[in-house]
Amino acid sequence: MNLNNMKFDKKPKANISTKNVSSLIAVRDEFETPIIQVQEFITVEKPRKEEFFRVHPDESYHFNVLVYESQHRPTHLVDPCLEETLKHFIKRKKLMLVITRNGELKLFPVDENSNSKWAQSSRDAIKRAQKDWVQLIPVRAKASNIIRTASGDLSQPQWPNLSPGEVFTAAFDGLVIDGLEHPIARMLRGDP
């Protein structure tokens, strides 16, 4: 006979403490400081529409650069000496260092020359995000972004101790088109 089976004949008794559970139902707690994570690389992208972000107020963390953007590849930095040769494929963007509420760093590419509502609303958001936590929500029907700011006693962003150079390296290490022999430059020019 299996000893374990014998145990099943005896109905186990449990004295469970759930009598006053209703008094323990929680109300939402107060705002807390977000977690800051260690980040090995920084992506070049607009914050997602759900994310609240702040822009680094120090202008040395705003980078005026040439970039190659593609749906299928990460954004590449382009050497200024290639501006004329690749002018049909690359764009001049201002990359703003932003931090999201959960501590993720991103470089938000903003078009400083465009008069489109998309670009204008992004620039407005950048200004606001130097003081407030901001959400940038695209609305296709209006060809623009809605800007929303978070109210309440929110903690200030905790910027990691990275120099502008370190930020740049974290974003573009291995992602620089530095000459016409670069595979992407060759592809763009139709070189075999």
Partner: peptide, 16 residues
């Protein structure tokens, strides 16, 4: 709820 989660980094059920 979504905004709270994005601002605070977490969301909880009524019993934590």
């Amino acid at each position: 709820n979504l905004n709270y989660a994005m601002l605070n980094g977490h969301l909880t059920s009524v019993l934590g």
